[in-house]
């Protein structure tokens, strides 16, 4: 049974279906939260909130409108970003210090990633973007920065960042969709 069917059963209070759903989505949910939040203990907390929220709000899912996995990961990402931003607001001064010391914006392609297949594919597609497209997309998605913060970090006008994000995602779609 796929996540879409399971989520419909979960909405009806089926705990066994939830266990199966957990098996399918806990890895992607935890991995994504961990990528954004970084801190293992906090990541676990956020992942737990997200998974419980799936149980509570499963009735909101409408399989005619899109895939369950997209919905689940969108929710997980939203929660992870909210958490990392509150944590960041608390330590904002340090952040400004780091910026002033001229630390370059983090570029994920340079990071050594474990080469899973999907991972490898995404990495290669990210490599194909221009540096500004890639940084605009990854600083927002993987690091949880708002587009204003991204603009500040990359010293770009707001409009440029919005465009780079859009172009970056569209290019990714072409590259990732190449064999789907």
């Amino acid at each position: 049974m796929d996540a879409d069917e399971l989520l419909v059963l979960v909405a009806g209070g089926d705990q066994k279906a939830f266990e199966d759903l957990y098996g399918l989505v806990s890895g992607p949910v935890y991995g994504l939260v961990r990528r954004v939040v970084r801190d293992p203990a906090q990541s676990e907390e956020v992942a737990q909130e997200v998974l419980l929220e799936l149980w509570r709000s499963a009735a909101r899912f409408d399989p005619r409108r899109g895939s369950a996995l997209s919905w689940v990961l969108t929710l997980a990402h939203r929660r992870a970003v909210d958490r990392v931003r509150s944590a960041r607001a608390a330590g904002e001064r340090e952040q400004r210090e780091a910026l002033r010391s001229g630390q370059p914006a983090f570029d994920h392609v340079a990071e050594e990633v474990e080469a899973g297949l999907e991972r490898e594919w995404v990495r290669r597609c990210l490599e194909r973007l221009t540096a500004l497209q890639r940084q605009s997309v990854t600083l927002a998605y993987y690091d949880g920065y708002t587009y204003r913060e991204v603009a500040e970090r990359l010293s770009l006008p707001l409009g440029t960042v919005k465009t780079r994000m859009r172009d970056g995602l569209t290019q990714l779609r072409k590259c990732l969709g190449g064999v789907a």
Binding site: P28, S70, V122, R123, Y141
Partner: peptide, 8 residues
């Protein structure tokens, strides 16, 4: 979401 999958 495709970006999310690769982080599992």
């Amino acid at each position: 979401v495709r970006l999310a999958w690769s982080t599992a």
